[in-house]
Structure formats: structure tokens, C-alpha cells
């Protein structure tokens, strides 16, 4: 790789990184931490509400119920697994990281939303045909990964544009010359 090429790549990566950081910094939580009590109704093959939005630091209390058969509730990143029995006020809660512990019978599951981003809760108890695709979403704001991602993608657009301008017409003309000779060979 030539020096000028290395420089170009370096500059491009810098622009994208800067844009990623700006993007990740932009999202804000919508308020101070609070206690949220949410009822989540499971049925074949979705949860209601489909998306739970909370802020970082919120204490989330979930009342899990099933409207038809036995369902599960496996919340990624929060080490939480519950079995939801229909027509029962209790759920059996366990920690997937500690399989040796006996499940607890609780009326509500509670956790502190300390990790930001989007996490899915999935059914962990075979509940019918679409069971493997039964899931819902917990979004803990500020969602920095989403902001950073959008920032990075926009940064790629900007970096490409800038680099093309800086490179000037040299390669552009070469391209025309080449394309004149063989209009199809654009590797």
C-alpha cells in the first residue's frame, strides 16, 4: 500500500470515528431514574407491550402473565430467566449464569436497567411453532450504539465525499480513459 493510499485511509477512518463519537454522544435519556412497573402479557408468539422503553438507572418491575400456554422470559444482558405459568400470579425466576440454584417463585421480576442499548427478551419455553421467534425488546436509553451506528454510517458518506474531492480529478480522468477502452471492466 502506497503512502498516499495509507494517508487517505487514515483520514477516512478519522472522519468516520469522529462522526461515530458525535453520534454516540447525541442520544439523551428522557428523564431522571424512576421505578417503573410494567405488565407484560405473553401469548403465542409475542409479548405485549412489544417494546419496553426505560432510562438508564430505572428500576424496572415486570408483572409477567400468560394469556395461553406456558411461556418463558429470557432477558439478555440482565441474566434473568422466568417461566410464566398461565393462570398463576407467580413466575419462576432463575439466573441463567447460576443453573445450580433453584428457581424462585415471585410475583414480579425486578432489575435495575444499568446497561444501555436494545436488549431482547425471548421465550425460553417451547410454546408452539413460532416459539424460536417469540421475542420483545427492552430499550434502555440513551441508546448510544444506535447513535454511534448512525453517526458512523453518515461519517462514511461524508468521508467518501471529502476524500473524492481531495483526490481531485486525477483518478477521475484516469477512470474515464480506462472506461473508454473497456466500458464493462470496473473491478
Amino acid at each position: 500500500m502506497s503512502r498516499s493510499e495509507l494517508l487517505r485511509w487514515g483520514a477516512g477512518v478519522l472522519v468516520v470515528l469522529a462522526s461515530t463519537v458525535i453520534g454516540a454522544w447525541m442520544p439523551r435519556a428522557s428523564g431522571p431514574p424512576q421505578v417503573r412497573r410494567i405488565e407484560v402479557k405473553a401469548r403465542q408468539y409475542a409479548y405485549d407491550p412489544p417494546t419496553i422503553e426505560v432510562n438508564q438507572g430505572d428500576t424496572v418491575r415486570l408483572k409477567l402473565t400468560s394469556q395461553d400456554v406456558v411461556h418463558g422470559f429470557y432477558l439478555e444482558a440482565y441474566d434473568l430467566q422466568a417461566t410464566i405459568m398461565p393462570q398463576s400470579p407467580y413466575v419462576e425466576v432463575s439466573r441463567p449464569s447460576r443453573p445450580e440454584e433453584k428457581p424462585e417463585k415471585l410475583e414480579e421480576v425486578e432489575f435495575v436497567a444499568d446497561r444501555t442499548g436494545k436488549f431482547r427478551y425471548r421465550c425460553s419455553h417451547t410454546c408452539g411453532t413460532m416459539h424460536p421467534f417469540m421475542s420483545g425488546e427492552l430499550v434502555v436509553k440513551p441508546n448510544r450504539l444506535l447513535g454511534g451506528g448512525v453517526g458512523a454510517f453518515a461519517g462514511m458518506l461524508i468521508a467518501g465525499c471529502l476524500l473524492a474531492c481531495v483526490l481531485g480529478n486525477g483518478s477521475g480522468e484516469a477512470a474515464v480513459a480506462n472506461s473508454g477502452r473497456s466500458p464493462h471492466a470496473i473491478p
Partner: peptide, 19 residues
Amino acid sequence: LRTGYRFAQSRFGSTRSSI
């Protein structure tokens, strides 16, 4: 983006019109 821009270069020529 890269393949799209390269194709634009091959058809439009100048950097300005390619962008």
C-alpha cells in the same frame, strides 16, 4: 458506496459530476 462511486467515476468522469 465504494463500488457505486467507482461506477459513477467510470460514467461521469469528473469528480464533481461523479459525486
